[in-house]
Amino acid sequence: MNVFRLTGDLSHLAAIIILLLKIWKSRSCAGISGKSQILFAIVFTTRYLDLLTSFISLYNTCMKVIYIGCAYATVYLIYAKFRATYDGNHDSFRVEFLVVPVGGLSVLINHDFSPLEILWTFSIYLESVAILPQLFMISKTGEAETITTHYLFCLGLYRALYLFNWIWRFYFEGFFDMIAIVAGVVQTVLYCDFFYLYVTKGWFSRPYRL
């Protein structure tokens, strides 16, 4: 464990909690892409199947359970409890254009042709594009609530910090994973436009307009 990975995990946890609390407290999921949240639930489910087969550490197990629990709770709030506030018209990204290519790629490019490894690879590739429906929805509505921008900032920051974690691990532990690094770079690059707007306009905390 290193400082980049720990702060990355905490940033990720903060994003997940911020979103869940925002929806729960405001009793509304307006402006939130349910499709992205479903993709994140799939990412965690396919990545954390090893919860059943291997124990790495208490921290690792606890965080995985929290991530999966919050992801499904968020999906439940959006599609069940506060379904009336779900903005389906603007959440129109065709996720099949993400899932199918990602599924194909994970079968073609992976470290080991075993079910668990292919599912893990699928989750890595899927996570790198899972935010697209959310960014697409914001570009369609032209604005996002301030709390949603903080959610996106923490979410984007987490994988950027993981990039530094991989540099750290390569330097100190001597290994790296090209699949995780390439997907992590793609994932972080997708947030660049948002990061620029968040930083340049964030200070005035007015609704975020593209």
Binding site: R5, D9, H12, D50, I56, N60, M63, K64, Y67, N110, H111, D112, F113, S114, L116, E117, W120, T121, Y162, N165, W166, F175, F176, D177, I179, A180
Partner: peptide, 10 residues
Amino acid sequence: DTESPMKDEL
């Protein structure tokens, strides 16, 4: 092939 070395990460 062996599995990804980053399996200990979240």
